[in-house]
Simulated assay, not measured.
Amino acid sequence: MQDEPRPDELIKAVADFLREQVAPQLTGHAAFKLRVGINALDLVTRQLTLTQASDTDELARLKELLGHDGALHDLNRELSERIASGAMDLSTPGLQDHLWRTTLAKLAVDQPNYASYRRELEGAGQHLSANAPSS
């Protein structure tokens, strides 16, 4: 185990410094490029803090859907093949819920401020809302 601060805390500190101290001093293309860099740091922070739990949940759902154990990547490939072949569709028990939860987990990392995602969390009260970042 590593001592504090954790990698996600270090990355967040750098992003916050750039956002609060450096960004106000820049304009034009340099400011744009800095915002792109800050967004990348924010994305990495979310990946470090959210993906382990969402991958664990996704793996459990896939095991249940497919009826056997395996690696996340392999089970996702198998699920895709079953959907493509017509062996599974939205009438398959649990499939629609799995796809929806997986989509919400991916949006929590990739686009947490996406308006439709935020509305879904607020309206449906999904458990992911507790893990969704505010920035």
Rank of each mutant, 00 (worst) to 15 (best):
D57A: 02
L75C: 07
V36K: 14
D97A: 01
T51E: 10
K33D: 10
K33W: 11
A13D: 13
D8A: 12
L48Q: 08
T102I: 02
F17I: 11
A87W: 01
G70F: 08
D55A: 00
Q96R: 05
R119C: 06
V14N: 11
A60P: 01
D97N: 04
W100E: 02
D3R: 15
E64T: 02
A108F: 00
R101S: 00
E120M: 05
W100C: 00
R118I: 01
D74G: 15
A71F: 07
K12I: 14
D3S: 10
T56Y: 00
S116Y: 06
N131Q: 11
L104G: 05
L104W: 04
E4T: 14
E81C: 09
P24Y: 09
R77N: 06
P7A: 12
Q96C: 02
H127C: 01
A13E: 11
L41H: 12
L104T: 08
A31V: 02
V36G: 08
L104D: 05
N39I: 07
R101Q: 01
A105W: 03
L50T: 06
F32K: 13
K63D: 00
A23S: 11
S135E: 14
L128M: 05
E64H: 00
G70P: 03
P133H: 05
T45K: 11
L18N: 10
Q52C: 06
R118K: 06
N113Y: 13
A60R: 00
H127G: 07
D97G: 07
G125N: 03
D16K: 15
Q47C: 07
S91K: 11
V14T: 15
L34W: 06
L79E: 03
K12V: 11
G70W: 08
R46L: 13
F32I: 08
H73L: 15
Y114C: 02
A87N: 14
A130L: 09
G67I: 02
Q126F: 06
L75V: 07
A132C: 12
D97T: 00
N113K: 10
E81Y: 10
V36A: 15
A87Y: 03
L128G: 12
D55H: 00
S80A: 08
A108L: 01
L26G: 14
K63I: 01
L66A: 06
R35C: 12
D74L: 14
Q111M: 04
R35V: 15
A60M: 03
H73N: 15
R77A: 13
E20L: 09
E64K: 04
G94S: 08
V36L: 13
T102D: 04
D42N: 14
F32D: 12
R46T: 07
D16L: 11
N76S: 06
L104E: 12
H73S: 14
